[in-house]
Amino acid sequence: MILPALFFYLFAGVCVASAVMVIVSRNPVHSVLYLILAFVNASGLFVLMGAEFLAMILIVVYVGAVAVLFLFVIMMLDVDFLELREGFIEYLPVGLVIGGIFLFELLLTVGFWVINPGVTKTITAAIPANVPNTEALGLVLYTKYIHYFQLAGMVLLVAMIGAIVLTLRHKASVKRQDINVQNARTPEMAMAMRKVASGQGLSDADAAEWVK
């Protein structure tokens, strides 16, 4: 009984601490690394709750893809993070007021939820017993929800086509690799023997042929 509680406090504590570090660290790369730490700990919390599928997805998608993408963006774009933080003190009062309102609303909702017996606590579909939740998802995803699954696939296909249509440009000046042509290349095609008279060098026409 004590062990899960210990692990919960370990994961939760590290998660909150690294979330704070995401905001306060001066180096944006450190921020992203702390974000990854927060994600890993959150997935640990999911494992404790018995939601191992969500835990693995969190690591695969958020750590494996999203956070790495963040790192790429930070390294490629020259964003001055100090400049972004300049107005921090001026906007602090407004931020505190909005945060206060959110906290108040959250307490109101939670309070209402706890006090009112008529409110449905959680609306969940029946969870099949004796089946790990990855398997439970697999059992319905490709059968009961095949329609949604296929449609989501079509939406992603359109997104891919759209990205290519709007951004791909074939430039004539770019030299492309054609493996068939490379394999079919013979010494005769690649080399030309010339007799160069001493003191004269090659003419411009010959030079143009070399560039090809």
Partner: peptide
């Protein structure tokens, strides 16, 4: 979404 995403493009 399928309809609109293609329309945006």
């Amino acid at each position: 979404e399928l309809m609109s995403l293609a329309l945006y493009v």
